[in-house]
């Protein structure tokens, strides 16, 4: 995934690392758009503010938690990102 051109929300299954209150959580990106994403993993303990590292894109985006269930979390990015297929 390269960050170039903005597209609508799309399904994917890429790894991401989330940092929140000094806590590190590895999870999977279920879908992503230019304004936010949905993650799956051990995300229940995340705080309100997060930073998401997309290893494949060498990108780090700050965001806030929009909703949360036991295994999934929705994140709003603080800035829009561009998405493109390789």
């Amino acid at each position: 995934m390269r960050i170039e051109r903005a597209v609508k929300r799309r399904l994917c299954s890429l790894p991401a690392t989330v940092y929140s209150d000094g806590l590190r959580t590895d999870c999977a990106i279920l879908d992503i758009s230019e304004r936010g994403c949905q993650l799956e993993g051990d995300v229940f303990g995340l705080g309100n503010e997060v930073e998401i590292h997309f290893q494949d894109a060498k990108l780090c985006v700050p965001g806030t938690v929009a909703w949360k269930t036991y295994m999934r979390v929705g994140i709003h990015f603080k800035a829009t990102i561009g998405l493109s297929e390789k």
Partner: peptide
């Protein structure tokens, strides 16, 4: 606001 877990409040 930030007193509570925002994601959980939304849920």
């Amino acid at each position: 606001g930030h007193k509570l877990d925002l994601g959980l409040v939304a849920t």
